[in-house]
């Protein structure tokens, strides 16, 4: 909340207005990107190849064992479906904006964002959507449905919905946190790469890794909370205090982003002034 109009609103009013505006921005982005239909068709092929390579890696691994670090074949399929769905959401909403943030800082566009009667962080990180991510979400959901129809898995769908949303929130906050460091570095391309490489570590369940890496993924860079912990909670593999940790991690990430963003805005001098 860093402009006068937004401060006068209650948080709920502000969220409602953001959602309404965001709907218009999403429609605009979709229409613009769907003009390039051949490109869209090509991306579908690429996403299928990516999905096939992810699945084949695990199909190959499970040819020689029934269990990888306590995950059987069906559970791993469920994990991958959840991963691809959340990764699709990340690709749709955050990724294109992360890439554009550096140019916002350098060409002074952020000056205008500060003047708009909307939270600047919302405009900076959710202004554009990437329609191609819809393919990933569709493939992820299809994989989940296929997995559940062919294997006997006991999934708590309410917990899945809640903890996947928390996972998505954590991904978004960590992504925004790393990109916001651009206020200090000006260039953000490498920051986004850096984030993405660490983000990839979440593509394996955290109990695959050695203890030192597991601790790192559960604390310093909470990639375990992106996909693995939510999937394990929904499958009933984790309970007790683990039900609380994703809330704490997501809350801590939101707080850290708010602090860093505020400091970044204070530091920002504006490229046009």
């Amino acid at each position: 909340m860093d402009n006068a109009a937004a401060i006068r609103e209650t948080p709920l009013q502000s969220i409602v207005r953001c959602v309404a505006l965001w709907g218009a921005l999403v429609r605009n982005s979709f229409v613009r990107q769907l003009e390039f239909r051949a490109d869209f068709a090509g991306r579908i092929v690429v996403e299928f190849v990516w999905l096939a390579s992810q699945l084949l890696t695990f199909v190959a691994a499970y040819r020689f064992t029934d269990n990888l670090a306590g995950w059987n074949r069906a559970e791993m399929g469920f994990f991958l479906g959840s991963l691809i769905t959340i990764d699709g959401l990340y690709t749709i909403f955050l990724y294109p904006n992360q890439n554009k943030f550096g140019s916002l800082l350098r060409n002074g566009q952020l000056d205008f964002y500060l003047l708009y009667p909307l939270p600047t962080v919302f405009l900076a990180f959710f202004r554009f959507v990437n329609v191609h991510g819809v393919i990933n979400v569709a493939l992820g959901v299809a994989l989940l449905v296929w997995q559940l129809s062919t294997a006997t898995l006991s999934v708590n769908w309410i917990l899945w919905g809640i903890y996947m949303l928390l996972g998505t929130l954590t991904v978004a906050c960590v992504g925004i946190f790393v990109t916001t460091l651009g206020f200090w570095t000006t260039q953000t391309t490498n920051l986004v790469w850096f984030f993405f490489e660490l983000y990839r570590l979440g593509f394996r369940p955290e109990n695959f890794y050695r203890p030192w890496m597991r601790r790192f993924l559960l604390s310093v860079f909470p990639a375990a909370f992106f996909f693995s912990i939510p999937a394990q909670i929904s499958l009933g593999k984790l309970g007790g205090a683990w039900l609380l940790y994703p809330w704490l991690v997501a809350g801590a990430c939101v707080a850290l982003v708010a602090i860093l963003w505020k400091r970044g805005i204070q530091r920002y001098e504006g490229a046009l002034s």
Partner: peptide, 25 residues
């Protein structure tokens, strides 16, 4: 261009440099 991206994305697993070729079905 998408053909180039598809090859780069898939070459690891389909060529046997990400997991051994003998591990695939």
């Amino acid at each position: 261009q998408f053909l180039s991206t598809a090859i780069n994305v898939g070459v690891g697993v389909f060529s046997g440099s990400l997991v051994p070729l003998a591990w695939l079905p």
